[in-house]
């Protein structure tokens, strides 16, 4: 049977979850912009606005401590971070492009070696996705196999209905258990979903693009695509599935922490050897890696596209590089 929840009940459910000690992460006003951040009350939940940064930091923070160390005479004490103590988290209000992203990243964070920092947070988080009713002109989820009403990656999925409130569907077993637990917040009955957003983007031929990438590592087009790229990394930092990181020590030789922090393959020093030799010495090689990783390498390795079409890179590139135009040009090649 269809379940619905009113906006008011959704906010009070968040209040209850907070009271129960859960961390609730949701789009929330942060100064002049909206970001995914822990909320302190259901009132702070901002629904239907795409946050400036993606939801990946719920699982993969911008910068996180992976151990601390302290020197004592000739010895060193290394203290682990207790990933078991990561809080139970509800991520709520993520549009399909953000809700789908963490599951895409499971592959890289679990092949052979398990990155417990990412995976423990995944295990402890319930994702409540939200269907999109308003796309802007940068959105292109429909070009890369998703849609504004796709529940992929969500445990629970909300669809706005006419007259206010949401349809509430359990997508995974985790979501179903959650729904059963908090059934008192829901109502039954008929409700008419609002029409979902309609991004202008048409589906890309991802297989064809991959084929072109396969045989065009040396194409002169890379120069053309990336001649303006400033290598600022904005696209990578805002991307829900870019996951390059650095490992750095912060502190002194006697005391400090080792941290994992976001990095970007577009940065000039990213692949620089100590000798000064740099395999990706110019920006178009770095931009090529960005496109290759997303539309070929990640496919080769894990059978998935490393892009959910959220459009943040399009909206934020300071020099106006539009990944859709790049992909369309590739697609038009024989």
């Amino acid at each position: 049977m269809t379940k619905t929840i009113t906006e008011q009940k959704l906010r009070s459910l968040m209040d209850l979850l907070l009271k129960e000690g859960r961390r609730v992460v949701a789009p929330r006003q942060a100064g002049s912009i909206v970001l995914y951040e822990p909320i302190d009350s259901g009132e702070q939940l901002v629904l239907g606005i795409m946050p400036r940064r993606s939801a990946k930091e719920t699982f993969f923070p911008l910068c996180e401590t992976i151990l601390t160390y302290g020197k004592d005479g000739n010895g060193v004490m290394v203290s682990d971070v207790d990933a078991g103590a990561f809080p139970e988290t509800i991520l709520v209000g993520a549009p399909p492009c953000d809700a789908a992203a963490p599951a895409v990243l499971d592959a890289v964070f679990s092949w052979d070696y398990n990155d417990e920092f990412f995976l423990e947070r995944r295990k402890k988080t319930i994702i409540i996705g939200l269907a999109c009713t308003a796309a802007d002109d940068a959105c292109f989820c429909t070009a890369v196999g998703l849609s504004p009403r796709d529940d992929k990656g969500s445990d629970l999925f909300l669809t706005p209905v006419a007259g206010g409130g949401y349809l509430c569907d359990a997508v995974t077993k985790k979501g179903k258990v959650f729904l059963d637990t908090y059934a008192s917040f829901l109502a039954g009955g008929e409700a008419k979903p609002l029409p979902s957003a309609e991004p202008a983007a048409t589906p890309l031929d991802l297989a064809g693009i991959k084929d072109w990438l396969e045989s065009n590592f040396e194409s002169p087009l890379w120069q053309e695509f990336a001649d303006r790229c400033a290598g600022c990394g904005a696209c990578a930092f805002l991307c829900p599935v870019c996951h390059c990181f650095d490992i750095v020590d912060e502190g002194t030789e006697t005391k400090g922490a080792r941290r994992k922090s976001w990095d970007a393959c577009g940065f000039g020093k990213f692949t620089n050897h100590a000798s000064g030799h740099n395999p990706r010495d110019i920006q178009n090689k770095r931009y090529r890696n960005r496109i290759m990783h997303k539309f070929k390498y990640y496919q080769d390795k894990f059978g998935q596209t490393l892009c959910t079409g959220c459009g943040r890179c399009v909206r934020s590139c300071p020099v106006g590089i539009d990944i859709r135009a790049v992909l369309e040009e590739i697609q038009a090649k024989p």
Partner: peptide, 24 residues
């Protein structure tokens, strides 16, 4: 091959030559 590495575990995205992770 000695591409620059950080994690050594196939995660950090630094060491690849095409789709080959040199560290793995």
């Amino acid at each position: 091959l000695e591409n620059r590495m950080k994690c050594g575990l196939g995660k950090c995205g630094r060491c690849n030559v095409g789709n080959v992770y040199v560290c793995k």
